[in-house]
Computed example of a mutant assay.
Amino acid sequence: MANFTLEDVRQRTYKARDAWWTVLLVDPLASRLVRFTANRTNITPNQLTVGALLLGLGAGASFYLHSWPWLLLGALLYHLSFTLDCMDGKIARLKGTGSIFGAWLDYIFDRVRVLACAILLMGGQYAATDNVAYIWTAVAVVFLDMLRYMDALEIYKVRGQMRKKLDTANEELAGLQLLQRRLAGEVDPAVAVDEPTADKVLGADPDADMEDQVLGDNPNAALQESFNKKFSWYARIRNVLKAGRIRPHLISGIEFQMGVFIVAPLVAAVIPGAIIPVVVLSALGMLAFEFVIIYKFWLSSKDFTRQIAKVDRKIADVRDQLPQEMLEEPLVRN
Results as ranks from 00 to 15, higher is better:
23 V>I: 15
141 V>H: 04
54 L>E: 04
312 D>G: 02
239 N>K: 15
8 D>F: 07
283 A>N: 04
273 G>K: 09
331 L>Y: 04
204 A>E: 11
297 F>M: 02
323 P>L: 08
159 R>S: 13
158 V>T: 12
175 G>A: 09
299 L>V: 07
42 N>I: 08
267 V>L: 15
227 F>W: 15
163 R>F: 11
44 T>E: 06
176 L>N: 08
149 Y>F: 07
307 Q>Y: 14
116 A>P: 00
43 I>S: 05
329 E>D: 05
105 L>P: 04
147 L>R: 04
154 E>A: 13
311 V>Q: 11
315 I>S: 03
90 K>Q: 15
59 A>N: 00
290 E>G: 06
24 L>Y: 06
276 I>F: 10
97 T>N: 01
149 Y>W: 13
131 N>Y: 10
119 I>A: 15
252 S>A: 14
243 A>K: 15
182 R>Y: 00
254 I>K: 07
14 Y>P: 00
143 F>M: 12
331 L>A: 13
59 A>W: 07
315 I>P: 11
156 Y>A: 09
176 L>R: 07
187 V>K: 03
124 G>H: 04
15 K>R: 14
221 A>Q: 07
7 E>P: 06
138 A>Q: 09
9 V>R: 06
85 D>V: 03
319 R>P: 07
119 I>R: 03
9 V>A: 03
52 A>E: 03
228 N>Y: 12
52 A>V: 01
124 G>P: 09
51 G>T: 01
94 L>Q: 03
296 K>H: 08
129 T>I: 09
212 D>E: 14
201 V>T: 11
288 A>L: 13
206 P>F: 08
178 L>M: 14
314 K>D: 14
21 W>M: 12
317 D>R: 10
22 T>E: 08
5 T>R: 07
323 P>Q: 09
324 Q>K: 12
189 P>A: 06
300 S>W: 02
141 V>R: 05
164 K>P: 00
137 T>R: 05
229 K>W: 12
222 A>Q: 15
209 D>H: 14
281 L>Q: 09
65 L>V: 13
